[in-house]
Design a protein around this nucleic acid. Structure first.
Length: 489
RNA sequence: GACCCUAUCGUCUAGUCUGGUCCAGGACACAAGAUUUUCACUCUUGUAACCCGGGUUCAAAUCCCGGUGGGGUCGCCA
């Protein structure tokens, strides 16, 4: 199909992993990485594994595991194996795999490929600062390497050699590991650390491709050395460009909305978020820019992934969200908007709610905006300044006449649906403008329609008076016009 | 600081491999106009970029060299 396919080892099953760390709610950058993994796996008929990387006991919390699962489901992303559904490589939480890691840790120790180190944090920190101040790369000096200690943290002996690997996005990358000291792979036999658990699990879970953020690029050679020491195969790597703040710094360091749940709660649609995230670093090579998840599975390609970081641009997300909101059926949108509507909305007939939502569908960028847009449908008394009732240069007297005229024609109206009301009011508005215009050539329909609309909505901007009047019904419409008139006298 | 990655409109990007069709295309944002009682939608138009300096070539956004900028990593976090 694509050139990409030829690079893939077809003898091995395509298996990708989603490895979030439950130290907080699912991060948008992580979600994007998972999305790319998901698309790649699906496209190649591969399998996906959700693996919870919770080796840091202090920072990991079960509630975040649930958030990760919930938000991924909300986005429409699923997996073949995971802590929630089990699978042949259970368990899928690293905190439950301590025995497995211990076996491999002992193997490394026995083969003298790792050793115990008793250097204190303070000592290490002092040496690090000293090295930095002398312009050297901070690296462990190997004090404990041949001391044969029987306790302490476990360090892996990093060979002094060059490690080269192929990255699917960046081609060949080379690191001189002589620049790196021996790395700590476990605090003790029961407490393994990231580099070690990743390598062991990727092997045991038979992961074929590791697609992750560029921040892991310089971690890769360490993990490759670990794979070699353990006799594991090497997965195929692809490092994605990072998601950036507007100041171009790494997005994970930003304060503000970085959790998928934030976007979820603020009324963004999963379709919009998916479409937005994939466009941050990937392009289809065509001018198409609207993609559903199934389309992405077909068209995604690692070859079209950008090499440099991408700034997170909220305006584009808003645009996409507005687009997908407009694409929704009205009834579907009502259900989505319900959480943002007052309690009383639940007592309202569904048909009525549909009319309200329909009137605002094109104006919505986020579901949450529906609250403010439509609050006047759910309150009895409107509070607005009487000055707002006047259109352009109209004085109080003129506004009052206008509203009284509207009240009269509306109370006489036989039909109260928006189409009939529009016909009736546009005709009347034209006549009203012509009658009151002393010298104006173009009848300004605003003279009748603006005061009416403001009296009904209490807002500078709203849906048309025809739509609002239909939804309000005759009685309420006339009451509001009366309330408007009362403000003027 | 060392190492690694990277560099096209304000932002996301196409084009770079295989130099000419690119006085650089699309999208968001912005501006103007049309429609319109308002806002929004929709439509039309516009502003706006090849990091810098050399070189190769008839010709460079595209190839080469050298700078510079940005990012990441250097943890008993992941």
């Amino acid at each position: 199909m694509t050139k990409m396919k030829k690079n893939i080892n077809l003898e091995k099953k395509i298996r990708l992993r989603f490895p979030p760390s439950p130290t907080g709610p699912l991060h948008i950058g992580n979600a994007r990485t998972i999305l790319f993994n998901y698309l790649f796996a699906k496209q190649h008929n591969g399998e996906t594994v959700l693996r919870i990387e919770d080796t840091d006991k202090e920072r990991s919390k079960i509630e975040w595991v649930q958030d990760i699962i919930d938000q991924l489901h909300w986005l429409g992303i699923d997996w073949n194996e995971g802590p929630d559904i089990g699978g042949p490589h259970s368990p899928y939480k690293q905190s439950q795999r301590t025995d497995i890691y211990q076996t491999y840790l002992e193997k490394l120790l026995a083969e003298k490929k790792a050793y115990f180190c008793i250097c204190s944090s303070e000592e290490l920190e002092g040496k690090r600062q000293d090295q930095q101040s002398r312009g050297l790369a901070p690296k462990y000096d190997g004090t404990c390497r041949n001391k044969n200690h029987q306790h302490g943290v476990i360090r892996f002996i990093v060979e002094n050699k060059k490690v080269t690997f192929i990255d699917l996005i960046r081609k060949e990358v080379e690191f001189d590991m002589g620049l790196s000291g021996d790395i700590v792979i476990a605090k003790n036999l029961q407490t393994p650390l990231y580099h070690f658990t990743v390598v062991v699990d990727d092997f045991l879970m038979q992961i074929s491709h590791v697609i992750r953020g560029e921040d892991h690029l310089s971690n890769t050679p360490k993990q490759i050395l670990l794979q070699e020491a353990l006799g594991f195969y090497q997965p195929i790597y692809a490092h994605l460009p990072l998601m950036l703040n507007s100041d171009k710094s790494k997005m994970s360091k930003r304060a503000g909305d970085v959790a998928v749940s934030d976007y979820h709660q603020n009324g963004y649609l999963p379709e919009a978020l998916i479409n937005f995230m994939v466009l941050l670093g990937w392009n289809p090579g065509t001018e198409k820019d609207i993609f559903s998840l199934p389309e992405l599975i077909k068209e995604f390609s690692l070859e079209n992934v950008q090499k440099s970081g991408a700034v997170f641009n909220l305006q584009k997300l808003d645009y996409l969200n507005g687009y997908y909101i407009r694409e929704k059926s009205t009834s579907a949108l009502v259900k989505l908007c319900l959480p943002y509507l007052p309690e009383t909305a639940k007592d309202m007939p569904f048909k009525q709610l549909e009319k309200i939502i329909e009137a605002y569908q094109a104006r919505l960028k986020k579901l949450s905006e529906i609250t403010e847009f439509t609050d006047f449908f759910f309150s009895e008394k409107l509070s607005y300044d009487k000055k707002m009732l006047g259109w352009k240069e109209m004085g109080d007297r003129e506004v009052k006449e206008s509203l009284e005229h509207s009240a009269k024609i509306l109370s006489d109206a036989k039909k109260f649906d928006k189409k009939s009301l529009e016909e009736l009011l546009v005709k009347e508005a034209t006549a009203f403008a012509e009658a009151s215009a002393s010298q104006g050539k173009n009848p300004d329909k605003g003279k009748l329609l603006w005061p009416l609309r403001v009296a009904l909505s209490g807002k500078e901007a709203s849906a048309s008076p025809f739509e609002i009047a239909e939804i309000l019904g005759k009685e309420k419409t006339l009451t509001r016009i009366k309330q408007g008139i009362d403000k003027l006298s």
